[in-house]
Amino acid sequence: MDLMSALQNSVRAAKQSRGEEVGEGEVREMRPKKKAPAKKATKKTAKKAPAKKRPAS
């Protein structure tokens, strides 16, 4: 017995034990996903000058 048929038999047995209708299953048409809005490129900020060292007190 191959793995796929073993899985199908297991699913069928589980459905029967729960009292669900046992059959081939439903095929539904999938709707296309909504596209996420395009991300805008972020502007690069000007580089900061390095912090100046304070003279020791």
Rank of each mutant, 00 (worst) to 15 (best):
M1L: 12
D2T: 13
D2A: 12
D2C: 13
D2Q: 06
L3P: 03
L3V: 13
L3G: 08
M4R: 12
M4W: 07
A6D: 03
A6H: 04
A6R: 13
A6K: 11
L7V: 10
L7A: 14
Q8I: 00
N9M: 11
S10I: 02
V11L: 15
V11R: 12
V11H: 02
R12A: 13
A13K: 11
K15H: 07
K15E: 06
K15N: 09
K15G: 02
K15P: 00
K15L: 13
Q16D: 06
Q16R: 15
S17R: 09
S17V: 07
S17K: 13
R18I: 01
G19E: 03
G19R: 03
E20P: 00
E21W: 05
E21T: 10
E21S: 11
V22G: 05
V22F: 03
G23W: 02
E24T: 14
G25K: 01
E26W: 05
V27G: 02
R28N: 10
R28G: 05
E29C: 02
E29R: 10
M30I: 09
M30W: 04
M30C: 09
M30S: 13
P32D: 12
K33R: 14
K33A: 13
K33G: 06
K33M: 10
K34F: 09
K34V: 10
K35V: 10
K35C: 07
A38F: 00
A38D: 11
A38R: 11
K39W: 03
K40N: 08
K40S: 13
T42F: 03
T42K: 14
K43R: 15
K43I: 05
T45Y: 02
K47Y: 04
K47P: 04
K48G: 09
K48L: 11
A49Y: 03
P50V: 12
P50R: 08
P50A: 08
P50M: 02
A51G: 11
A51P: 01
K52D: 05
K53Q: 11
K53G: 05
K53E: 09
K53Y: 02
R54P: 01
P55I: 07
P55E: 07
A56G: 02
S57H: 08
